[in-house]
């Protein structure tokens, strides 16, 4: 971080998250619980940001890698299987499986151009759901794999129903992921990605082999998404049903990246706060508030704020694209410390 003393929004946001973790209980905010979802989706968004934001490959099947991660983690830890790894070995396994899956999908398909690649990733997302659903001898089909044992952390012990330790664990992993993404972005690897995004032919004339570069981006993104999936499964002690990792989740990840600002790590953090914050925090709270007052009739379809979720998402996306297409916190120059 040669560039320097100026504090980037990422660190401000992560600092804010630390502060929230510290103050949540004394102030009785009750935000730590839903914030865990924000952190997991920020990880997923970071993964997609590597693929779509840095490398410019439209990816519509990120949820598939999340599912692969969740299932790898679950199979690795759950005691209905013989493997029964600890939390950390299973996490490593999850990340490796995710990267390999990304690699295997990317190898034959990364020669395709833009929209064709998008549909292939979309198809992959559907296939993975089907596989998880149909191979029930291994994946337990629609009931999902559960219960997963809680993570055991050195010095803390078993993570139970208390939210605090979970929050710190997720936040710590997110900080690591942010650092990894920044390191990559400001290196030879990341420059190759950005160059391929800006102009693939020119990049190739500069000696960058585009397909291997894209392959690394794909695998990195998949590994981060798998990590998000593993954490998600661990949080709910279950993979949930395969349908949970559907196209909507992939699109949610895309929204996070785009609302935040394509190719901007700061943006991913803001984007996940905005999108998941609205979906998981604001809407449920609004619903509870309205119902407590008896304002709305929950049997009417219009009465439940949850039914408005996609309308809100859709309108947010459309308005964003009209008003601020570069996102809330667009990527900034000076990745290599040009500012000095």
């Amino acid at each position: 971080m040669i560039r320097g003393r100026s504090l980037s929004p990422s660190w401000i946001l992560l600092g804010g998250a630390v502060l929230l973790g510290l103050l949540d209980r004394p102030l009785g905010l009750g935000l730590v619980d839903p914030m865990r979802g924000v952190l997991v989706f920020a990880l997923l968004g970071l993964g997609l940001n590597v693929v779509t934001g840095f490398t410019g490959l439209l990816h519509l099947g990120m949820a598939a890698f999340m599912a692969i991660g969740a299932y790898a983690f679950a199979i690795g830890t759950c005691d209905i299987y013989p493997f029964q790894l600890g939390f950390w070995p299973a996490m490593v396994l999850t990340v490796v499986v995710g990267a390999v899956a990304g690699f295997l999908l990317g190898a034959p398909t990364l020669g395709l151009r833009g929209d064709y690649l998008a549909i292939v990733t979309l198809g992959f997302g559907e296939i993975v759901q089907d596989v998880m659903k149909n191979m029930d001898a291994i994946t337990k089909g629609t009931q999902g794999i559960n219960p997963l044992p809680p993570p055991v952390l050195p010095g803390v012990g078993e993570l139970g129903s208390e939210e605090g330790p979970w929050y710190w664990l997720f936040l710590g992993l997110l900080v690591l992921a942010v650092m990894a993404c920044r390191n990559l972005e400001r290196s030879r690897t990341g420059r190759a990605w950005l160059a391929v995004r800006e102009d693939e032919l020119a990049a190739s004339c500069m000696g960058i082999a585009p397909i291997p570069a894209k392959m690394y981006a794909f695998a990195t993104g998949a590994a981060l998404a798998a990590m998000a999936g593993g954490l998600w499964a661990s949080l709910y002690a279950s993979t949930g049903e395969p349908g949970n990792y559907d196209f909507q989740v992939s699109i949610l990840a895309l929204c996070i990246v785009i609302v935040g600002g394509m190719g901007s790590i700061d943006g991913v953090l803001v984007g996940s706060l905005a999108m998941i914050g609205v979906a998981n925090i604001a809407l449920p709270k609004l619903a509870a508030w309205l119902q407590a007052r008896g304002v709305v009739d929950p049997s009417n379809v219009l009465g439940s704020p949850n039914n408005w979720k996609y309308l809100v998402f859709g309108v947010v996306l459309m308005v964003m694209m009209r008003v601020r297409p570069e996102g809330l916190l667009p990527a900034r120059l000076g990745r290599v410390g040009g500012g000095r």
Binding site: G114, L254, N307, Y310, G314, L317, M318, M320, M321
Partner: peptide, 27 residues
């Protein structure tokens, strides 16, 4: 005149709105 991706994201947003409208319509 916007980049292709901007348009695509608008289309995705639009699709969400339409799905939601259909949900309401069904009620």
């Amino acid at each position: 005149s916007a980049p292709k991706l901007t348009l695509l994201v608008s289309a995705i947003g639009c699709s969400f709105v339409l799905v939601n409208l259909a949900l309401f319509w069904g009620g």
